[in-house]
Write a protein that binds this DNA or RNA. Structure first.
Lengths: 304, 304
DNA sequence: GTCCCGTTAG
DNA sequence: CTAACGGGAC
């Protein structure tokens, strides 16, 4: 069912620095890479890394990803079980943590460089961490976009306003700090289900947060900032429903299947042809005690 | 190690009503009983009946008591898992519950009568419930005496004052409402360790609540009210340490053994000769997740 | 240390 | 519904 891989990596075949030309103050030195062995990345909103530690180990045992992007750590930096994670083979990590809320981490079998954490839209939330895989230069953004509260109104609901400003800041950052040819992956809980088939009912959710027009437009701006490719839709097209999240409040979440696709893995255009597989690990949503999000797994293969 | 019994009961051999004579308004009709088969009762401060439900079932499976007295239910009446308890064979219960704190219950395989709940010392705490085993007339008091806070000073610490007033009210109730020949059992967390060998250090705990002189005197008054017999000390004497409680805050509670005997099972004088066995079920304190109290088990045998 | 509860957040 | 937190209690 699921292809099994040994720990692998993107080998750099052609390495050259690129200046985008649109920006005089390029932050990162950029590397063009070519995968010769499959490389896999799992993104998962764990809803508490402490409560989900056992399941994280199970995910590792079963899929053995090279990189894991976690969102909603919900633990202060000292409370994240880094020792158990390192013991499971992920000795390298880039993390932004805060007590109780938010928190993102990139876990890696291989050394990471250029680690940065970002706090957008005038709040110190731990929602965005970046790192490059040192050996290949591939950049990884792990992002947890604000949920946005209940009322889809910027003025009545400051959380919704924050969400939209967060997405705008993210778009500005990508447009201003990287080049189109920088090989990067963006993985995370983006808290927006942009397409009709990203929700169980396009009509019924038109006015509920995660599927409103204004959020979809804001996410589209982020996507355009670096011509990001939505790997899931690149592979399966837009015509089939794909969900990664099912509310806790429905006991029969699988039979009713009122899900949404809130978790995404994007790649920059240079990696588009390397997309070998993308899948939602729905099985994990059945494990106990569950996160409300299922992990998403991307496999990058050989570019012939 | 532990004698195993089938569900059993006290058969009434000689049944006659008794008037105490000291009180014109006797509340209960009284029955003199004689056990012909072993009868057992377990008293346990569970520190949340919800968190300890699995362990309660294990206790039942292993010791099969006729009556179970629970303290610190810590659940509102609708939150107590009575269905699971009934499924385990205890279809009859007398309960006083309140959300969050306190809460006592008498669980029984056999029908109960004369159920009463009491709230002493001007507070509506759920700390005392009474019932009679219908078939035998033996009365059972399940009591959770207030802990009393940290400072052993009636004036500085209202909780300590409440504890002492609670014990006084309890003594008055027993003296005023029952006769010496009424066969009754008092089981519960009395939150007092009266004897030197009821604590790990008589000297070090002389001024800590549960072992102060004034509490011991107050408990002694309760004991005298009906000439209650302390079954544990009746059987083992006063010279050996016996503990039923070990603080959560010591990880190595068993090796250091800094315990106290806070949980007691008393009987009225008529049942004294029936005491067959009393034991602290220390094994249960090892189960996970533990209560800080171990259950106490009383067996009443045949009176020849 | 463990548990309840209300609050905040999702 | 699930989770973290802070406060109170033991």
């Amino acid at each position: 069912m699921f292809p099994q891989h040994r720990a692998s990596l993107l080998f750099s075949l052609i390495i050259f620095s690129v200046q985008t030309g649109r920006d005089c103050c390029q932050k990162h030195s950029i590397t063009r890479t070519m995968p010769v062995q499959p490389f896999s990345l799992i993104s998962w909103n764990v809803n508490s890394v402490r409560k989900r530690l056992d399941q994280l180990i199970r995910v590792i045992d079963r899929w053995d990803p090279d990189i894991i992007c976690l969102q909603e750590l919900k633990a202060g930096i000292d409370m994240v079980p880094v020792d158990a994670i390192a013991a499971a083979g992920y000795e390298h990590h880039a993390m932004a943590a805060q007590p109780g809320y938010n928190g993102v981490a990139i876990l890696s079998r291989l050394p990471l460089t250029d680690i940065e954490t970002f706090a957008w839209a005038d709040r110190q939330d731990a929602r965005h961490v970046f790192a490059r895989v040192a050996s290949t230069g591939v950049g990884v953004h792990c992002v947890y976009v604000p949920a946005g509260g209940d009322v889809p109104d910027r003025i009545a609901n400051p959380k919704f306003d924050f969400k939209l400003r967060y997405l705008d800041a993210l778009a500005d950052h990508f447009a201003g700090s990287y080049g189109f040819r920088d090989p990067m992956i963006l993985a995370g809980d983006l808290n927006v289900a942009p397409l009709p088939n990203d929700v169980w009912s396009h009509t019924k959710l038109k006015n509920v947060i995660t599927h409103t027009e204004i959020e979809i437009a804001a996410l589209e701006r982020v996507k355009r900032s670096l011509n990001w490719i939505d790997t899931q839709r690149e592979l399966v097209g837009d015509d089939d429903p794909v969900f990664t999240w099912w509310s806790y409040r429905a006991a029969d979440w699988e039979s009713t299947n009122k899900g949404r696709r809130l978790d995404h893995i994007w790649v920059t255009p240079g990696l588009k042809d390397d997309i070998a597989d993308v899948e939602v690990l729905t099985a994990v949503r059945h494990w106990s005690p569950p996160s409300d999000h299922a992990p998403v797994r991307l496999v990058l293969g050989t570019n012939p």
